[in-house]
Write a protein that binds this DNA or RNA. Structure first.
Length: 422
RNA sequence: GCGAUCAUCGUAUAACGGCUAAUACUCCGGUUUGUGGUACCGGUAAUCAGGGUUCGAUUCCCUGUGAUCGCCCCA
């Protein structure tokens, strides 16, 4: 009679059942570990931000703000947006304590971000993204450092350098290249940049036709292509990375990046496997982001890397598997019947005080079933608790992996268990 | 926002327009009233929603919903 609710999650977002959460935790933990070896500190903020943070001029690309954010009016008639990216938030936080913070900063966060878009491979409406930024260093070695971190992140998941490629570009250098060709109008540069971004997806003919319709001059079309194809291009960031032993990197003049706030280095890391031919990570340098909040400016460079694309990468290259561990209890206490549940819970407390992970099987299944359930859950030990054991004080601890048993008082078994777990 | 493909037990698959919609795994129970994953036996459980064509629709058509893949954009 009454209509039941669907059990599916909201469109484009995920439920994390324990087996998914195990993967998610592995990704987050690995991120955290690597990033902290680079001396980064963690911060976070609310998922809610005033809509103005994204709307103010030149903050981000207009399409994303207008068409791809979750924006609503709250009960106090404030316009609120679910954060679609973290950079404006961290810029706001840095600007807010500009005078108190001791630069340079190395900050990271793993926020969940929301974008209202059509879900597809590697793109969902909610994703988590590792965000790393260095604030307050103009020197190019900050660019090198942040890209070296991005590189190391993948290495620490077990990736080898042939599995991915770092693609570098520089907004300032692009402006110079265009200026050298006599192209100075920002509108035209913008159009060419957007076209370049799509270059790998379209044919050379399509590219040339589109480029011609922008610049209206065949000679110029050829000159632009020549500049873009220059394989020998290098810069100090590229050389710096090579000095650090990072060689799967190249200059790619078609790298564009969507956000308007980038002013210098921009980079992406792409999967070299053709079946997962996507950008997994992207970032760049921004000089003017704090100007929204203050007259003073602080330069920053950072990147974001998504959990969805990360998982796709790890699955594509078979880098998950052995790393994923379910959180199983070490010990399952098995009462022979429900009347022994409380006695069992009391015993469990003794083990928990010694930091043993214990669950008590409170079901009314038969003992054999409870034991096989414990095995299936991945427990290492099982302890049977029944009237005989409680009366005599003599218990049996089963080692489920080796199919051995140990008898004794709770105290001796506790000592035994602790000495047999690492 | 646009385009393509798809939608069957909890999961993965099967069924020419025609028998009670099948099989495997999972789950539950039993063989075994207090002790292990196996084996054997049994059980629960599905045609996304609404309309149309037809004697008859899981199958064909339309609409909606959802998913996947691509475009746009981006992690």
């Amino acid at each position: 009679m009454d209509k039941k609710l669907p059990t599916e999650p909201y469109k484009g977002v995920r439920d994390f059942y324990p087996e998914d959460m195990a993967i998610q935790s592995y990704i987050f933990n690995t991120w955290k570990k690597t990033v902290e070896t680079f001396g980064f500190e963690r911060y976070d903020a609310s998922i809610l931000e005033p809509a103005d943070l994204y709307k103010s001029k030149g903050a981000v690309n207009a399409e994303m703000v207008n068409d791809q954010t979750y924006t609503f009016i709250d009960r106090g008639e404030r316009e609120v947006t679910l954060r679609p990216e973290m950079t404006p938030t961290v810029a706001r936080m840095v600007a807010g304590k500009h005078r108190e913070l001791s630069f340079p900063l190395r900050w990271y966060s793993i926020p969940n971000l929301f974008r209202y878009e059509r879900a597809q491979r590697g793109r969902l409406r909610e994703h988590w993204q590792l965000n790393c930024d260095i604030f307050g260093i103009e020197h190019y070695t900050a660019d090198v450092e942040i890209i070296a971190l991005a590189h190391q992140l993948l290495i620490d998941f077990g990736a080898t350098p042939d599995m991915f490629e770092i693609q570098l570009n520089n907004r300032a250098e692009m402006s110079q290249i265009f200026a050298g060709l006599g192209i100075t109008e920002p509108e035209v540069i913008n159009e060419i940049t957007r076209l370049n971004d799509r270059k790998k997806k379209i044919t050379t003919e399509e590219y040339e036709t589109a480029l011609l319709s922008i610049v209206g001059d065949t000679a110029l079309v050829n000159q632009i292509q020549e500049k873009l194809n220059c394989q020998n291009d290098t810069n100090e960031v590229l050389e710096g990375l090579k000095t650090l032993g990072i060689n799967n990197v190249k200059i790619d003049r078609t790298i564009a990046r969507g956000f308007d706030y980038y002013t210098g280095t921009i980079f992406e890391i792409v999967d070299t496997d053709p079946s997962n031919n996507r950008s997994m990570l992207g970032g760049g340098r921004y000089d003017n982001l704090l100007k929204m909040f203050k007259d003073e400016s602080v330069t920053g460079i950072g990147f974001g890397m998504g959990d969805v694309t990360m998982r796709d990468f790890l699955e594509t290259h078979n880098l998950l598997g052995a790393h994923i561990t379910k959180t199983a209890p070490t010990l399952v206490i098995i009462p022979t019947d429900s009347d022994r549940n409380l006695d069992s819970q009391k015993i469990a407390h003794l083990f928990r005080q010694r930091e043993v992970k214990v669950s008590v099987d409170l079901s009314n299944k038969k003992i054999g079933k409870k034991i096989s359930d414990a095995v299936n859950r991945g427990a290492t030990f099982a302890l049977i608790v029944g009237p005989d054991e409680l009366n005599s004080g003599n218990f049996t601890l089963k080692n489920l992996a080796f199919e051995t048993e140990e008898s004794g008082t709770i105290d001796t078994l506790l000592t035994y268990l602790i000495s047999h777990t690492t």
